[in-house]
Simulated scan of single mutants.
Amino acid sequence: MFSQKVAQQSLRRLAVQQPNLMQSMVMRASPAAIALGNVQKRSVTSSTEKEDPTQILARQRLNRPIAPHLSIYKPQIGWIGSSLHRITGVALSGTLYLGAAAYLVAPTLGWHLESASMVAGMAALPIAAKVLLKSTLALPFTYHCMNGIRHLTWDLGRGLTNPAIIKSGWTVVGLSVTSAIALAFL
């Protein structure tokens, strides 16, 4: 902010003192360069051939390096696990907010979301449906919890070697599936 004011004041002073010089400099230099007196001149080089500007740009693009992207990498447990950690976090928090909002507006809309009606609804389901529903709800929670512990150990600077990342990634997958199934049978 201060440097901009200084540049503006010096440009105004220059414009008042030497208007002809100011007009010729504005055509070639930036305001900061004019204010600091660092005006450089360089000659313009142009080719003798009349080339189509779109062809020049297309030829330059062919010489540029291509940035790597996900489609060229082999899927690894490290980045897949971190991605799933974020996805499960968003899914769990979104479900919590939607459930809380539904619970608050349920009496107004005539819905029965109180504990007694939820227990009665679950009791009416067959065993296979209960296990499937409960494990579907438990798996994102257990995965996010186990992988959160993994990320916390990384924050402490432990387990950051490739073999340790692979081992801990598959350990998190196994523990989260096992604990989700265990929770489903409770």
Score class of each variant (00 low, 15 high):
53 P>I: 04
129 A>R: 11
52 D>N: 12
80 I>W: 12
179 S>A: 12
108 T>F: 02
58 A>T: 03
119 V>Q: 04
127 I>K: 13
168 S>D: 05
3 S>N: 03
32 A>Y: 04
71 S>F: 08
182 A>F: 08
45 T>E: 01
148 G>T: 11
163 P>K: 01
92 L>I: 15
95 T>A: 15
163 P>C: 03
186 L>V: 13
24 S>H: 06
111 W>V: 01
138 A>M: 00
165 I>R: 13
138 A>R: 02
115 S>Q: 12
45 T>K: 10
149 I>F: 14
67 A>S: 14
44 V>C: 04
19 P>T: 08
68 P>V: 13
76 Q>Y: 08
95 T>V: 08
108 T>M: 01
23 Q>H: 06
51 E>Y: 04
11 L>T: 03
153 T>C: 13
3 S>R: 09
39 V>S: 03
30 S>F: 06
94 G>H: 06
169 G>R: 02
172 V>K: 08
152 L>H: 02
100 A>T: 13
63 N>H: 12
170 W>A: 08
56 I>P: 05
68 P>Q: 12
114 E>A: 11
90 V>R: 05
78 G>L: 10
143 Y>L: 12
140 P>T: 04
86 R>G: 09
159 G>M: 00
125 L>W: 08
53 P>E: 02
90 V>P: 02
154 W>G: 09
36 L>C: 00
18 Q>C: 08
23 Q>T: 11
183 L>R: 07
109 L>H: 03
81 G>F: 02
103 Y>T: 14
100 A>L: 15
9 Q>V: 14
73 Y>L: 14
134 K>N: 09
43 S>L: 11
142 T>W: 10
89 G>D: 01
44 V>W: 02
167 K>N: 01
172 V>I: 14
166 I>K: 11
4 Q>C: 02
93 S>H: 05
142 T>N: 11
168 S>Y: 01
4 Q>D: 12
31 P>L: 07
114 E>N: 15
50 K>Y: 07
2 F>K: 10
165 I>Y: 03
71 S>Q: 12
43 S>H: 11
109 L>C: 04
10 S>N: 11
23 Q>K: 09
155 D>T: 00
118 M>K: 06
86 R>M: 09
164 A>N: 07
172 V>C: 15
22 M>E: 05
160 L>S: 04
184 A>W: 01
142 T>H: 10
178 T>M: 08
166 I>C: 03
76 Q>L: 10
46 S>Y: 09
46 S>R: 14
34 I>R: 15
114 E>K: 12
177 V>M: 12
37 G>Q: 07
50 K>L: 11
125 L>K: 14
107 P>F: 06
